[in-house]
Structure formats: structure tokens, C-alpha cells
């Protein structure tokens, strides 16, 4: 990082087969309507969005979001939200691959309905199997550096540690671990889950994450469109701050003004 000045535009994110200029990935869950999703995608400039795989229901007015997203030309990352075991996650990933004709998948294997925390063993099993089947696996994981390493070694395209539980808006509860994961893992690290507001997103990027995924923080904000813009700017600001190199923390003050030439001495 020897550049004197770093332009964000030169700083694309290479993730699996894709190159993205926006480091914000949007989760579409929790939005009150398809229109709001479209507005937040446009306002944020995000180039990748996540979707879930669910049973087709002819009675739903806002049913499939396929056509809506096709109009916006964004990369669509199907997830395996709600799966409790590797077997269901693998089948759901295959459904996503067939529906969207994509090899991308965000693997979520949860351990219980209350915390929605990832089940580490089933997650590792699903990741291994899906990599074997030729998927680009984006693995939603706990903020555990050891597990993140395992997932990367199993061939994950990206590891996506949670800042805090999904939809909690509690921000990054263990910044030290997130920083360690970002430092140690070779593949892209995407902070996923727990973002509550723009400063959380900036903080994730300052910790060294390569990207941020935000869903509820945007879709459930009072004004989703402006929160999308705000979080998108925070991701850019946080990335630039990280690349620019923060000053070390000190216990005591260090004058920014020299004492030399001070009058009355």
C-alpha cells in the first residue's frame, strides 16, 4: 500500500468469479415491498444482492422477486436461510443454482430459531460438499477465527462472519475477532449480520473487512432509501480509512503542535 492517494474507484473487490466496485452487498430480507428493494439497490449502488429460496405461492401479490432484480442487472446471491442441517442447505443451494442459473451461494446453516447463530459443524459439512459440487461458497459464519480458517481451507470463496445476531442491530460485538479474521484469512471477508447503522459498517471496514452485507439495517430503517445511501457511503469511508492507516492508540496525549518557538518560555 505505497500509494500516496487511494482512489476508491481503483479499489475493486475481487470475489469468486466477480469484480465489484461497490463493497456493500444488500440483503433484501425485511423490506416492506419490492419497490423499496429496488429503491435501496439504486440508492446504495450495490452490485450484489442476496435472496432466499421459498416455495412458489400463486396467492402472493409480492411473490417472486426475480423480474424486479433482472431489471436492475445486479448479481444475485441465493442463500440457504432457514436450513438447520448440511443436507437441506445443499439441496436448497442446488434449487438456487437451478432457479437462477448461478454457481454462487451464501450458505447459512443455523443452530436454533432464537439466535439464528450458525451451526459450525453443519456449516463446515455444507461448505465442503458445495465446494465439491462446484459452487462459489459464501459462508455465513460465527465470529470465530478458527472456524473462519477452516471454511477458507475448505475452499470457501468468502467467509462472512457475523457482527452480532441476524436482525439484532447490535453492531460488532467482538471487533477483536473480526479484525483477526480479516488479518488471517486469504479469501475475502464480508461482515455479515448485526449492522445497525452507518457507523457499524464503517467500523467493519476499518477493522479490515473486504465488504459488508446489510439487510435489516436498511430494509427496516424508517427511510430505507436514505439509510441505503448512508451505509454505502460509510462502507466507502471505512475502506478508505482502513487503507489510509489509522494512527496508533496511545495512553497519553501527544501534542500535535510543536513546543518550539512557544512564547513566554
Amino acid at each position: 500500500m505505497n500509494r500516496h492517494y487511494i482512489e476508491n474507484d481503483e479499489d475493486a473487490l475481487k470475489i469468486g468469479p466477480l469484480t465489484l466496485s461497490s463493497r456493500l452487498i444488500l440483503g433484501t430480507g425485511g423490506a416492506p415491498s419490492h419497490r423499496v428493494i429496488s429503491e435501496t439497490i439504486t440508492a446504495s449502488g450495490a452490485e450484489m444482492v442476496t435472496v432466499a429460496i421459498r416455495r412458489f405461492d400463486p396467492t402472493l401479490r409480492d411473490g417472486s422477486i426475480f423480474e424486479e432484480l433482472a431489471k436492475l442487472s445486479v448479481h444475485v446471491l441465493p442463500n440457504t436461510a432457514g436450513c438447520f442441517g448440511a443436507r437441506d442447505a445443499v439441496l436448497t443451494a442446488e434449487l438456487g443454482r437451478e432457479a437462477l442459473q448461478t454457481d454462487l451461494v451464501k450458505v447459512e446453516v443455523i443452530s436454533d430459531q432464537d439466535t439464528l447463530l450458525p451451526d459450525p459443524l453443519e456449516l463446515a459439512r455444507a461448505t465442503e460438499e458445495l465446494v465439491k459440487r462446484g459452487f462459489y461458497v459464501f459462508a455465513y459464519t460465527n465470529d470465530d477465527p478458527a472456524l473462519a480458517s477452516h471454511l477458507a481451507n475448505l475452499g470457501a470463496t468468502a467467509v462472512m462472519p457475523l457482527g452480532s445476531p441476524i436482525g439484532s442491530g447490535l453492531g460488532i460485538l467482538n471487533p477483536h475477532n473480526i479484525e483477526l479474521i480479516a488479518e488471517r484469512i486469504e479469501c475475502p471477508v464480508v461482515l455479515d449480520a448485526g449492522i445497525g447503522c452507518a457507523s457499524d459498517a464503517a467500523f467493519a471496514m476499518e477493522l479490515g473487512c473486504d465488504a459488508v452485507l446489510a439487510a435489516s439495517a436498511i430494509t427496516r430503517a424508517k427511510v430505507p432509501k436514505s439509510m441505503a445511501r448512508s451505509i454505502s457511503m460509510a462502507v466507502r469511508a471505512g475502506r478508505l480509512s482502513y487503507l489510509s492507516g489509522r494512527i496508533p492508540r496511545r495512553r497519553l496525549a501527544q501534542a500535535s503542535t510543536t513546543d518550539e518557538g512557544k512564547p513566554f518560555t
Binding site: 425485511g30 432466499a52 429460496i53 416455495r55 417472486s64 422477486i65
Partner: peptide, 24 residues
């Protein structure tokens, strides 16, 4: 999809027809 025309359902089959929905 390439086999939809030629795949005929049998009694007691369990069928899932899915699409993409909003989701995190």
C-alpha cells in the same frame, strides 16, 4: 428445466416448486 417436458410425476411424489424471495 431441460427435463421438465419429459419428467412425468408418479403417485406419492413429493414435489417442491420454488422461486426466489426477498431474504438476507
Amino acid at each position: 428445466r431441460s427435463k421438465w417436458d419429459t419428467f412425468f410425476l408418479s403417485d406419492q411424489d413429493a414435489i417442491e416448486v420454488v422461486t426466489i424471495f426477498q431474504g438476507g
